[in-house]
């Protein structure tokens, strides 16, 4: 962790219009939860669709995308990353610091609202709200690492990330069973299931598969991003 890199990253991430954009995600979730609570439908079904599908399935990946790419892709795009890179700082330190900022932001703007939404829709019982929140914590962290790597590796990070989040996680995951094993959302749900009471949350992936995959992907993405940053080529303007 480098405090200066962290400070610059936080200010860049939250200081501009993106800060307001980030607030939209939890706001949407909480408003929908409040509306749903008044609808009188089955609490458990509501929790599964709002927390499982909307939050873990869509809002967490989108927030992870905005934050994960936002902590570095913007700087690479406008060239200001030069000021971080022209220093005798180990590249992995820059990456892990930015990752820590991304994860903390994802937690604050996605995992915490998921917990609140769970309490609103279902109440504190059966470990359901906490379960989904923990699921959002772990999947949010992995999304941050993945999208941070995308931000370093490609100039089209947001498009590539959206393609992954929407096409793979939402579409393919819904129709092709095998694809769910390779879905961050399902890994998150698997962890959520283990936290909540039995039978409260469904997931297609066993915990013994999900945890190594979560850790493996996060670590691999972080290492890859560090290596990639060390060899970052700035395109000359000529």
């Amino acid at each position: 962790m480098n405090p200066t890199v962290a400070r610059l990253t936080v200010r860049g991430l939250l200081g501009r219009r993106r800060g307001i954009l980030l607030l939209v995600v939890p706001a949407v979730l909480l408003v929908i939860s409040l509306l749903a609570r008044g609808s009188g439908q089955d609490k458990h079904d509501l929790a599964a669709s709002i927390l499982g599908q909307l939050s873990l399935g869509t809002l967490v990946p989108i927030l992870g995308l905005v934050v994960g790419t936002g902590v570095i892709a913007t700087e690479i795009d406008d060239g200001s990353i030069v000021y971080l890179l022209s220093k005798p700082l180990p590249r992995w330190q820059i990456i892990t610091t930015k990752l820590a900022v991304a994860i903390a932001t994802t937690w604050a703007f996605a995992a915490l609202p998921t917990l609140l939404a769970g309490l609103i829709v279902y109440g504190p019982g059966d470990g359901l709200a906490v379960g989904y929140a923990v699921g959002a914590l772990v999947s949010g962290a992995v999304y941050s690492a993945l999208f941070l790597l995308l931000g370093v590796a490609t100039r089209h990070a947001v498009v590539a990330g959206l393609a992954y989040a929407l096409v793979w996680e939402s579409l393919v995951g819904n129709y092709v069973d095998g694809a769910r094993t390779l879905s961050v959302q399902q890994w998150g749900l698997s962890v959520a299931r283990s936290v909540a009471s039995d039978g409260m949350i469904n997931s297609d992936v066993a915990l013994g598969t999900a945890v190594p995959l979560l850790i493996g992907v996060a670590v691999a993405a972080t290492v890859a991003a560090s290596v990639k940053l060390a060899g970052l080529t700035l395109v000359s303007e000529e």
Binding site: V82, S86, A230
Partner: peptide, 22 residues
Amino acid sequence: RNQQVYRQIGLVPERESMYDYL
């Protein structure tokens, strides 16, 4: 790929963008 050289090098890039919010 040698970050240690930056102890000796000062760099003024052509691109104008810096951290505008600072």
